[in-house]
Amino acid sequence: MKNQTALITGASRGIGRAIAARLSAAGYDLVITCREREDLLKQAADEFSSHGIHCRTFIGDLGEQGTAARLFDEIGETGRTIDVLINNAGQSHIGLFQDTTWEEWQSILSSNLTSVYALCKEAIPGMLWNGHGKIINISSVWGVCGASCEVAYSATKGGINALTRALAKELAPSNIQVNAIACGAIDTEMNSFLSEEEKESLMAEIPAGRMGQPDEVAALVLQLITGNEYLTGQVIQLDGGWI
């Protein structure tokens, strides 16, 4: 049997790379993307290919009009369709709402939400043709409850959560499941701006007493794409009991 193919965005590091590593070890062929760190993406692809799977890379800003279509044109040239779509790529923004510029707002909206729209739109026709599919959107607990000084980021993650629930209803009759993982504090480069004192203060707020690890997100992704097909439209909080 031909391996199923998973597309993972933002896979050069952090959560995206952990998901790609977990799926490659499980026998999925991969298409991995990032916006600019071609060196890290190539290193990741070489590592994953050692598992005996096929791994293709793509560099580009998937929030820009036409980029997702170009990616899927390249995938189509290989005769493949995407069985699993993991929308992981995104950026954070910290600052007072009234200080957020138009350019900053548009940038985070494009990176975090428009890219999800573009990739889902391109992936769904192949899933409909195959009669199955899984879409997992990597979100945040701030999309559930909002965060002071992260209004733009919270708004985009809230949009992802709403998109997940609505799209799941639309695609359920076609045997395509759509779910989201609302991550809490995960120990990645995105949180590297925190001082050790700030990290300790943060962990004191989390009932589990620690930050989550990227591989824990990856493990949940694998559970969702290999598990119960009746589970769809869910935004699952992975936060150690924090929120």
Rank of each mutant, 00 (worst) to 15 (best):
G146L: 11
L7P: 08
S110V: 00
L71N: 09
L62G: 03
T188G: 07
I124S: 05
I136D: 07
K199D: 13
A155W: 02
G146S: 10
L222T: 02
A69W: 01
E205L: 06
S192Y: 10
L222C: 10
A25R: 14
W142F: 09
G241C: 11
H54R: 06
R22G: 13
L167G: 13
E103Q: 14
A68V: 00
G227M: 01
W102E: 15
A219T: 12
L23W: 07
W105T: 00
I75M: 07
N137W: 15
S115E: 09
A185D: 13
L222N: 15
P214E: 07
A219K: 07
R17P: 03
C34W: 05
R17N: 07
V178D: 07
G126V: 01
L163F: 13
Y28H: 10
Q43I: 12
K157L: 11
I108W: 04
I94L: 08
S107I: 00
D39F: 00
L163S: 12
N137H: 11
A20R: 04
I136T: 02
V141Y: 04
S140Y: 09
A26V: 01
D46Q: 10
M211I: 05
A218Y: 02
T57P: 02
E196H: 14
L96R: 13
Q237S: 15
S201P: 01
Y117N: 09
G63N: 04
R70H: 08
E200Q: 05
A204C: 09
A21T: 11
E189F: 02
I138L: 12
E150G: 01
T156F: 04
K169L: 05
H54N: 10
Q213M: 06
I236T: 04
D187K: 00
S49P: 09
T67Q: 05
I86H: 08
I19K: 06
L23Q: 11
S192I: 11
G10M: 10
N130G: 08
E74I: 13
L224P: 06
F48Q: 03
R35V: 10
A147Y: 04
L167H: 02
A123Y: 04
G27R: 00
L128A: 12
F193M: 12
S115Q: 06
S50Y: 04
T226V: 00
G79W: 14
K157C: 15
A25G: 03
W129N: 13
A162F: 00
E170A: 03
A180P: 10
R56I: 05
R13T: 11
F58I: 01
G76S: 13
T81K: 07
Q98E: 13
D239G: 01
L238G: 12
H132M: 04
A45Y: 08
A155R: 01
E36T: 13
I181H: 03
A21H: 07
A180G: 10
L119C: 14
I225L: 12
V31A: 01
A26N: 11
A45D: 13
V116Y: 07
S174T: 09
A166S: 08
Q177M: 07
V217W: 02
Q4N: 14
I82F: 05
N88P: 15
G227T: 02
R22Q: 14
A168Q: 03
D29M: 05
C120W: 01
A68Q: 15
R210C: 04
Y230G: 08
R56L: 09
N130S: 15
N87F: 11
A44L: 01
I135M: 02
G159D: 10
